[in-house]
Amino acid sequence: MSTVNSHEHHYAHHFKNADHEFVTSKQGVWLFMVTEILMFGGLFVAFFIYHNMYPDMFAEGAKQLDWRMGFTNTLVLIFSSFTMALGIHFIQKGQNRKATWCLVTTLLCAAIFMVIKYFEYVHKFHLGFFPGKYLDVAHVGAEHANLGLYFGFYYCMTGMHGIHVLIGMALIVWVLIRNMRGDFHPHYYTPVEGVGIFWHIVDLIWIFLFPLLYLVG
């Protein structure tokens, strides 16, 4: 039972049918996800290699991070992934109003994630933990002269991830508005499916970033 008026979706003329269009669009999103893995993957590989070179310095860096912040953010992001998947589930069942609430919850969780991230960054700036050469070793009382390298990785990886959260939020707002407008129904919800996959990869990357940056030092 649809709670909003469904708009008819006409598939593009170069597709055989609506399913063909859906499958093709989804495959495009999966190809995009491969580029995401490789982009973050490069940072992960660099992190592993430098960690192997300077294990003690990385341990000192990881000690400066508050695991409670990372832990909370992990739970928030997992929950948001759950509500995103649930949103698609409800649209597929034609329960668009429930899907709207799921998408709103996802958006809220994303906002909470960014607020926590903001407080983390501000606290690090306050203490003087800047990336690379901007980290004043004497000022922060660092044991290792190259501690800036750890924070270079920290800001690049969490910053890149944070940008993805912000883009994801914008995309969720887009599908949320379209859902409320009644664009989606069990036979057409391609944008939500694509945004969902993107949102899950944001969660997927954080699942690895959390132990990497906060715990394994």
């Binding site: 999966w30 190809l31 996800m33 490789l38 490069g42």
Partner: peptide, 13 residues
Amino acid sequence: IFALGFFFLLLLF
């Protein structure tokens, strides 16, 4: 397709 991403990541590493 998705597994391919991890394969090339492994190659890079």
